[in-house]
């Protein structure tokens, strides 16, 4: 038993509900397109490396593989990207016709200027990372974090986050933050992924225990690896 008034309301609801839903969907769609497609394009600027570098070519030419250029110094610290002095050992003069190499020798070697490489894996200054602990002690592969960079023939475009100034590699190519492979992202969560799930080897000292039929109640860890996830000063292992 509807009254006149109710009818009037129904009519007007009918007339407006359509456009309201439509505009809602339009808004939704627009923002999805913006958020997923346009935003990443705006967020990152595209930069080219000063010199296009061919890893494959170099790998063939050097004797000790990756370690010829990326090595551990005597004190255990990691050399990272080679300094000019190292390149000059072979490239005092251009060895081929490649315009990139000619440019390298003319612009950098001749002037004794370091190449301003754009470092894909550069982390903020508050992060302290020991290559030795991961590569030497935990015997991890470089590729676990850096991917198949050694197989590249050209330098990738370096995408720089306009807000933070860091490379897109840190957040990962996929703007959603999801990844398929371990090397596709380098945020703290990705470190934590291993540090919380993997059983990390530690040097364990077994404390004296006089009653041999009882299980030993405790073991004391003497290594540092487990510290990252357990003890109270854990933060300061990576954030100095």
């Amino acid at each position: 038993m509807s009254t006149q008034d109710d009818k009037a309301k129904e009519v007007s609801a009918d007339g407006v509900a359509g456009p309201i839903i439509l505009f809602f969907i339009l808004g939704l769609a627009a923002s999805l397109v913006f958020g997923w497609v346009i935003f990443p394009k705006l967020l990152y600027s595209q930069k080219k490396q000063p010199i296009d570098f061919n890893h494959v070519l170099h790998d063939e030419a050097v004797e000790e593989g990756c370690e010829s250029c990326h090595f551990f110094r005597e004190d255990g610290s990691f050399s990272g990207i080679p300094k000019l002095a190292q390149c000059v050992e072979c490239h005092e003069e251009a060895q081929g016709e490649d315009p990139n190499e000619v440019k390298f020798v003319e612009e950098y070697v001749a002037n004794g200027r370091e190449v301003p490489w754009l470092v894909y894996a550069r982390q903020p200054d508050c992060v302290f990372f020991s290559h030795a602990a991961h590569v030497k002690k935990a015997e991890m592969d470089c590729g676990t974090c850096h991917g198949h960079i050694g197989e590249s023939e050209h330098s990738r475009v370096y995408e720089e986050n306009r807000i933070t100034g860091y490379s897109r590699d840190i957040w990962g190519k996929n703007i959603s933050g999801l990844k398929k492979h371990t090397w596709e992202r380098m945020k703290m969560d990705d470190c934590a992924e291993c540090h919380t799930t993997k059983e990390i080897k530690t040097d364990v000292e077994t404390l004296p225990w006089p009653i041999n039929w009882l299980p030993r109640p405790y073991e004391k860890q003497t290594g540092n690896q487990a510290r990252v996830k357990t003890v109270k000063e854990a933060c300061f292992v990576c954030h100095k």
């Binding site: 505009f23 809602f24 969907i25 339009l26 808004g27 939704l28 769609a29 627009a30 923002s31 999805l32 913006f34 958020g35 997923w36 935003f39 990443p40 703007i175 959603s176 933050g177």
Partner: peptide
């Protein structure tokens, strides 16, 4: 409102 709801399910 649609825009806001949509934005929330983008990484933005």
């Amino acid at each position: 409102i649609g825009g806001v709801a949509g934005t929330a399910i983008t990484p933005l």
